[in-house]
């Protein structure tokens, strides 16, 4: 199975929609499970996807997660129309956060999101433009392993 026959699905996420937060990631987790990925990979994908979904909800107007799965890897491309990130190095620092009190009351915005996505991924790429948005490419190598 090549790139062209990979499993693909797009999941739109609306900024500020805290009520639905996590729904997309639950769907992605279930899909990864159904496609027979190992528990370890499923959990890494679920956590990174949730962090990405929360970031769109907390900071952007709208965005989407594009999931693609081939026998060798899972990839989530996250694109949002948001404020962008001024200083990526600072934003990647554990504990650095620009979250509002409302976000913190829900237990989020502790400044772990980007670094946690990177920790769970095998390849993590980020590009951003201030005032326009952010794009993340999160790749998990599965080496064809199945549960």
């Amino acid at each position: 199975m090549g790139e062209e026959s990979a499993f693909r699905q797009e999941f739109p996420v609306t900024g500020g929609d805290f009520a639905r937060a996590g729904k997309v990631s639950c769907e992605i987790k279930n899909l990864a499970k159904e496609l027979g990925l190992s528990d370890r990979v499923v959990r890494r994908v679920a956590i990174a996807s949730y962090e990405a979904e929360m970031n769109i909800i907390m900071y952007a107007r709208e965005g989407r997660l594009n999931l693609s799965i081939t026998p060798d890897r899972v990839r989530i491309i996250v694109e949002d129309s948001g404020p962008g990130i001024e200083d990526i190095e600072l934003a990647m620092t554990e504990g650095y956060s620009t979250a509002t009190p409302e976000m913190r009351e829900l237990g989020f915005g502790a400044g772990m999101g980007l670094s946690n996505m990177k920790k769970n991924a095998d390849i993590f790429e980020i590009s951003t433009e201030v005032g326009r948005g952010t794009r993340l490419e999160i790749t998990f190598l599965t080496n064809g392993q199945r549960a």
Partner: peptide, 29 residues
Amino acid sequence: MSDVLAFMHPGSILVTGQVNTHVIRTACL
């Protein structure tokens, strides 16, 4: 929940004072 996502081992019992739906979704994920 950020710490749960970043540091908790899978299969753990979560003790928390948060009672919103995000706790349940975090728990599942």
